[in-house]
């Protein structure tokens, strides 16, 4: 379990370049660093569900990112709050 307040990095991984897949981690967050806000619960892995495979339950977290760190030009002044599954998160 990842504690609230923990800094995490979204894996800079691109499974879509390796074959058919279903990913709930947006492109714009791959490799980005954010802060875990809270654990939202455990849910069956959608990456398996989409293909009718047996899906293990994964911890889902609300992770907050500074939007200005995501885009090169320093805009916009906002935070982005996103649901991400634990296997996509690495401790910083």
């Amino acid at each position: 379990m990842i504690a609230a307040g923990q800094r995490v990095r979204v894996r800079d991984d691109w499974p879509e370049t390796r074959g058919p897949c279903h990913i709930r981690t947006p492109h714009y967050l791959r490799g980005a660093t954010g802060t875990v806000q809270r654990h939202l619960g455990d849910f069956p892995n959608p990456e398996d569900l989409a293909f009718g495979r047996k899906a293990r339950r994964l911890s889902l977290y609300h992770v907050v990112f500074d939007a200005s760190s995501l885009w090169g030009d320093g805009k916009p002044k906002a935070e982005i709050l996103v649901e991400l599954y634990e296997p996509w998160l690495e401790p910083v």
Partner: peptide, 30 residues
């Protein structure tokens, strides 16, 4: 996610600098 304050302004929702903006991207089970 890219330009939310200007998008909001086009809707007539002009947020002051003192108003923090949080964009919630519904990516998963909620």
């Amino acid at each position: 996610v890219r330009d939310p304050r200007r998008l909001l302004a086009e809707w007539g929702t002009v947020l002051g600098d003192d108003v923090a903006l949080r964009v919630v991207d519904s990516t998963a089970d909620y």
